[in-house]
Design a protein around this nucleic acid. Structure first.
Lengths: 218, 218
DNA sequence: TTTATTTTTTAGATTTATCTAAATTTATTT
DNA sequence: AAATAAATTTAGATAAATCTAAAAAATAAA
């Protein structure tokens, strides 16, 4: 078995593996885990001894199949628990992260699989992130954001790229949730502020906000 | 915040505090937690510094109000999660302990309270152990066991005093679950073996087994 | 009430995950 | 290509939880 700490390292490496082809650098991991590069080096050596990562000095790390499998199962746990918290325990989408961060490390295959059944095989978590199945497979949304849409185009909100509580609370305050339909009325050329319609109301939304909304065009 | 280890010490001390008036000895705690008395002494000093226990050298430990509150909240968590696992996730009563042992340390008041609501305020866990409410109050069964009953007396099973998987599996194999009604047909004087009726079937049950079944006389 | 036994504590060591500061390697400029 | 800057690793230290072995205190027995 692995410690919580080891699992968090694997998760962090997994997160950035999808973003680059190269190995993930110690600094990136240190940043993600709020620790120091030197600590990361130490831990990576340990994970390498366990054959969970491949490590070449000064060249960053990549996950082995074994390591990837563990990382995926933790992501799976995390997202299933988020669904549970929102759908069954009345949590808001900005309240689930920290608790799911703890729950994800509970190690029981039966628990995870039964939870998935209980929740009726959800495909996405409350932020629209895809939930890996038992074998680690998952579908993900196309990377189209609201900021990619042009005037008069329409789409449905299917996810967010930014998970901060302040962003999620802001979206909720303007009635912008997963599944909401949006129409673009106008795009200001200067700063890309958008005027959009949500539920027949018109509002302005900054570029910073619109580029973090994943959209499915309709 | 406290570490899992600290919480487990508090839980162990709580468990044996109810059984004796005196302070709980380091050896008893060491036994409960599969560690050594010397380790217990170390940890107790730490808990004492945090004002969670009262410690007098060679005299054992007792919980402070603060320590008791934490211990109770962990017991509460543990038992609520056991109910969840059995009622919602199809776990058997002999499968829940280890997972609940991990889940109990997830620290979120909202999580616990919402879980309690979701489960509709259960008063007892799947083994008949009482679940403390938000304020730490709980009712407990009278300490009457099947072995206390005499010939022709009847009762309902409301709990077990032994939680080992082998005992629980045995009970399940003879259709003896919480809520089952039992009638005592005969008691062998020699070794206290009992012949009892469960659901109109007659079976023999050893003293070892009968003295661990908590019964409500009817 | 001494002596022997058991229990508990102390002392010193180990392991894990972390840190700071210094050294080394790689990347970037001039 | 040499000099500078940035990233990464090593060395040595620290804090938490544990252990073994020895010392001290409490309890039980003679």
């Amino acid at each position: 078995m692995n410690t919580f700490t080891e699992e968090n390292y694997l998760k962090a490496i997994f997160k950035y593996s999808t973003k680059t082809k190269e190995g993930v650098s110690t600094n990136v991991i240190a940043d993600e885990l709020n620790t120091k590069a030197s600590s990361v080096t130490d831990m990576i050596k340990k994970l390498s001894d366990k054959k969970l990562v491949i490590y070449k000095k000064y060249k960053g790390v990549t996950l082995t199949e074994k390591g990837k499998k563990i990382a995926l199962s933790i992501v799976r746990n995390h997202r299933l628990w988020e669904v549970f918290l929102v759908e069954k325990l009345n949590f808001k989408w900005d309240e689930v992260h920290d608790v799911a961060e703890e729950l994800e490390h509970i190690n029981s295959e039966k628990l995870t699989d039964q939870l998935e059944i209980f929740l009726d095989y959800p495909k996405y978590d409350p932020h629209g992130d895809p939930i890996p199945d038992k074998n680690g497979n998952f579908s993900h949304h196309k990377d189209v954001t609201l900021s990619d849409l042009s005037c008069n185009e329409k789409g449905i909100v299917v996810g967010v790229k930014e998970h901060s509580s302040s962003y999620l609370k802001y979206l909720e305050s303007i009635d912008l949730l997963l599944g909401t339909e949006i129409k673009v009325n106008e795009v200001i050329e200067f700063d890309h502020t958008m005027n959009i319609s949500i539920n027949k109301k018109n509002i302005n939304i900054s570029h910073q906000a619109s580029k973090n909304l994943i959209i499915k065009k309709t």
